[in-house]
Simulated scan of single mutants.
Amino acid sequence: MTKRLEYLKNVKGIGLFTGLAGTGKTACCRAFVSSLNPSLYKVVYLPMTTISASEFYRDLAKGLGLEACYRKIDNFRNIQERIKKLYREQKTTLTVLIDEAQYLSRAVLSDLKILMNFEMDSKNYAVLALAGQPTLNDTLSMQIHEALRQRIVINYNMQGLTAKEAADYAKDRMRICGVSRDIFEPAALEAAYGYCCGSIRMLNTLLHRALIIGCEQKRDTVGTETVMDAANEIDLV
Rank of each mutant, 00 (worst) to 15 (best):
L203S: 03
Y87E: 06
T135H: 12
R175I: 01
G214S: 06
G24L: 08
D99M: 09
D220M: 09
K113V: 13
V222Q: 03
R149G: 10
L189G: 06
E100L: 06
G178T: 05
C177T: 04
E146S: 15
M142F: 14
T93F: 15
M142D: 07
C197H: 13
Q159P: 00
M158W: 05
V153Q: 03
N37Y: 05
E185D: 12
D111T: 14
T162H: 07
K164S: 08
S35R: 11
E89S: 10
G13M: 08
A170Y: 04
P47D: 08
R209E: 15
L20Y: 15
R106Q: 10
N137D: 13
E67K: 07
E89M: 12
K113A: 12
K218P: 00
L86P: 00
L140R: 11
G214H: 09
T221M: 05
I212Q: 15
E146N: 13
V179P: 02
Q143Y: 06
E81D: 14
Y41W: 12
N78V: 02
I176Q: 09
L94Y: 08
L60N: 01
K9M: 08
G198I: 02
T49G: 01
D121L: 08
I98E: 01
G13Y: 04
A166D: 02
E6T: 06
S141K: 15
V127G: 00
G15M: 07
T18A: 09
D168A: 14
I200Y: 02
D74Q: 02
R71Y: 10
M228N: 13
L64G: 01
T95W: 14
G132E: 04
I51K: 06
N124M: 12
L46P: 00
R82N: 12
T162R: 04
L94R: 12
M174D: 09
L20R: 12
F32L: 11
D99R: 11
Y195P: 01
A191E: 12
K12Q: 13
A170D: 04
L140G: 09
V108N: 03
L40R: 15
T18M: 03
N117R: 10
C177R: 14
L66Q: 02
F32T: 10
N10T: 14
H208D: 15
S35F: 05
I176A: 07
L206S: 06
A188C: 05
M158Q: 13
V44A: 11
A210L: 03
T26A: 07
Q150P: 07
L8A: 10
G132F: 13
S122W: 07
G132K: 04
V153F: 01
E100D: 12
L104I: 08
F56D: 00
L136T: 01
I51M: 06
E190H: 11
A170E: 09
D59V: 01
V43L: 03
L203Y: 02
N78Y: 01
Y103M: 08
A131E: 02
R151E: 08
D138K: 14
M174Q: 09
N204H: 11
I152V: 15
E55F: 04
E55Y: 05
H145G: 05
G22V: 09
T92H: 04
I14A: 02
A53F: 00
F56Q: 01
A230C: 09
R173V: 00
I152H: 05
R209I: 15
M48T: 14
A107R: 05
K84E: 15
R71Q: 12
D182I: 00
A230H: 06
R175E: 06
M116L: 12
A188H: 08
L5N: 09
L161M: 07
S39P: 06
Q143V: 09
T50E: 15
